[in-house]
């Protein structure tokens, strides 16, 4: 498997009236061909902005990629001209989004919305693109596709719309599919349908997938590797089994422990007290410092670097939770006014 994507020191900021929002703060990661990478984080963790920055899909202004490079298949996407990046989007990199209700244009038929990418990137004429659209819709499990192409998004259910989105994202046989919380707005039985569909299509087409989610459960079943983000930075990156079995970062650890599990009768959930930091006014040290049970004075002064602690397992933390003991039981209470 070759290296498909390499992101080095990517930094994205939003210049707002309240100040500079450091949405993505120096993240680096890679992705191999055919691989599935899960990016997990809460709202404001920078997981979506980070991945949108890859194909420069953030609103500019106020957003701006202020540093770093994105090497996709040997080319730096950050340095590309607008025309060059457009020929990558929707063509070699497909995307599906969170809310299938709002992500489809309500005034155009679904066929029209899929066909336009085919006509643009594959140089097809109307007849060819229509034929291919019907094939795509059938492939994503929309029965009677020939009759469905001329219908409008509001005539489909949420799950069906997400299938349309997938057909659209995959229309030009991309090498990489970016899935931004594609199941968050869906019911759990529909989520299972969509996850299964994407996995099957990935097997058939051999593309790599970046799956962004806030739900560790969803990526546990599908990802090869997982990146945990917090306040615009990578906290931990590891192969999926290692991450769940041997998480080393206090945040990852807390996140996993705070999840109620269907298969276990857990006692009290371990909760991470406090709130994420303000991205306009990030602390100098580790962004998780204020909520961390293991913190030491060094954490407040110096931002930990992402170190490889075992092959493929990277952690940005000054301490080792397996060796060091909890230093404060309720850190957040100290900060209370």
């Amino acid at each position: 498997m070759g290296r498909l994507l390499e992101v080095n020191n990517l930094q994205t900021q939003f210049f707002t009236q309240d100040g500079v929002v450091q949405a993505v703060n120096d993240i680096s990661f890679y992705l191999d061909e055919g691989e599935t990478l899960g990016i997990v984080g809460e709202s404001g963790s920078g997981k979506s902005v980070g991945v949108m920055s890859l194909i420069r899909l953030i609103p500019i202004p106020p957003g701006k990629i202020v540093g770093g490079e994105v090497i996709f298949d040997g080319q730096n996407l950050v340095k590309m001209t607008d025309n060059e990046i457009r020929s990558v989007r929707g063509n070699r990199i497909g995307m599906i989004f969170q809310d299938p209700m709002t992500s489809l244009n309500p005034v155009l038929t679904i066929g029209r919305q899929i066909m336009e990418a085919l006509e643009l990137h594959m140089g097809m004429d109307k007849t060819q693109s229509r034929k291919r659209t019907v094939e795509l819709l059938e492939k994503v499990g929309i029965s009677g596709a020939a009759d469905q192409v001329d219908r409008y998004p509001h005539q489909f259910s949420g799950g069906m719309r997400q299938r349309v989105m997938i057909a659209m994202g995959l229309s030009c046989n991309p090498q990489l599919l970016i899935a931004d919380e594609p199941t968050t707005a869906l019911d759990v039985t529909i989520q299972a349908q969509i996850v299964e569909l994407v996995q099957k299509l990935q097997e058939d087409l051999g593309m790599a997938v970046i799956w962004i989610t806030h739900d560790l459960g969803v990526v546990a079943g599908i990802a090869d590797r997982i990146i945990v983000m917090y306040a615009g930075q990578t906290m931990e990156e590891a192969p999926v089994r290692e991450l769940f079995a041997k998480s080393r970062h206090p945040y990852t650890h807390g996140l996993i422990a705070s999840l109620p599990r269907l298969d276990q009768r857990s006692g009290k959930l371990e909760s991470i007290e406090g709130l994420p930091p303000d991205l306009v006014d990030l602390p100098k040290g580790c962004p998780f410092y204020a909520r961390c049970k293991y913190r030491i004075p060094k954490c407040d002064k110096q931002r930990p670097k992402l170190d490889e602690i075992s092959p493929g397992h990277y952690v940005a933390c000054h301490i080792d939770i397996n060796k060091d003991s909890i230093t404060t039981e309720h850190p957040w209470e100290e900060d209370k006014e």
Binding site: I55, V88, R89, D99, S103, N105, A117
Partner: peptide, 12 residues
């Protein structure tokens, strides 16, 4: 709107 982002993501 989200669907404008979708349109851009298509490379239009």
């Amino acid at each position: 709107e989200d669907f404008i982002r979708t349109a851009r993501a298509k490379g239009l």
